[in-house]
Amino acid sequence: MDSNLAQKAVSLALEGQWEEAIKVNKELLKACPDDVETLNRLAKAYFESGNIKRAKSISANVLKFNPADPIANKNLSRWKSLTEVKKSCRTSHPAANFIEEPGKTKLVSLLNLGDKKVIAKLNAGDKVIITTHAHRVCVLTLDGKYLGRLPDDLAARLIRLTKYGNTYQVFLKSLEPESIRVFIREIFKAKKMARVQSFPPDVIRDLEPADEVPPHF
């Protein structure tokens, strides 16, 4: 297999250039029609281009070569309820979005997941938003579709932090049929919260404005 062409296929996917990715992966398959990695990339590219029927067909073909292939099995599980999907306008999100920073980032699993058809159209790396309510924090797609909610203890903390003026950015870290994990990053710290970590290793009662926080905090 042409390693340079394979790398180009990967790069095109990372850049969200799905139509070009389809062409390159199809070119690779001419030399090696049963290459599972290429087939999985092609299925993904078709899915993102809006051709769910073709994506399912290719993933099913992968399982003929390797019935235990985790990527094809996961994709078919996510896509089985879909009959159509809008063409993706998604651009890639750099790995830097998931760099952990003590006190400023948090990886968390969502509770009470939303509609599986909505979730099936998403990808790891997609940006999402959080909305705060009186006693809960929900995670939504950029167009406002519900995905799940944060655990109560973390929700209570973020409600107070955002009330004081902190702001956060959220990305999908991983998606499974029954599990979604999101990566939350503090992107702005209010002056009143200057001495308060958003996500301390051990949660303590430290959610008062800076001029009210005891020195040992």
Rank of each mutant, 00 (worst) to 15 (best):
Q197W: 03
R41C: 10
R149D: 08
K80V: 11
K86N: 04
P70M: 02
E178S: 13
A95G: 01
E101R: 07
L39A: 08
L142P: 04
L158E: 05
D126S: 09
H216A: 13
I71C: 03
Y168P: 09
A155D: 01
S198W: 10
T91I: 12
S174E: 15
S174D: 14
K87T: 12
K192M: 01
A210I: 07
T162H: 10
S92G: 12
T162M: 12
P70I: 01
I187W: 13
P151G: 01
A156D: 07
A68T: 05
S77K: 10
L161V: 04
D153H: 03
I71H: 07
S81M: 11
L172R: 01
K145H: 13
Q169F: 00
L107S: 14
Q197L: 01
L161N: 09
S198N: 08
R136V: 05
S174Y: 04
L110T: 03
W18V: 00
T141M: 12
L39F: 02
S179W: 15
F188R: 15
N66M: 01
P215A: 04
P67L: 09
L107D: 10
M193S: 05
D153Q: 11
L29S: 13
S109I: 10
K106P: 02
Y164R: 04
P33M: 11
D115M: 05
E100V: 05
V170A: 11
Q197S: 03
P94G: 15
L14E: 12
D202W: 06
G125D: 00
R90C: 12
K163Q: 12
K23M: 09
L175M: 14
E15W: 15
C32N: 08
S81F: 08
H133P: 00
L147K: 13
E100M: 14
V137F: 02
N4C: 02
A120V: 03
A6Y: 08
L76P: 06
V182Y: 10
N75F: 02
I187M: 13
D2K: 00
D152Q: 06
S49G: 11
K189G: 02
N66S: 14
A68I: 02
G144Q: 14
F199H: 04
I22V: 12
D211T: 11
A68K: 04
T132F: 06
N97K: 12
A194T: 03
H133Q: 08
G50C: 11
N75L: 07
K53F: 04
P151N: 05
L111M: 08
P177F: 12
I71F: 13
G125L: 14
S57A: 15
V170L: 09
R157F: 05
V85N: 11
Q7F: 06
V170H: 10
E27A: 01
L39R: 01
A155K: 02
I52G: 06
V10G: 06
G125M: 13
Y146A: 11
E186G: 06
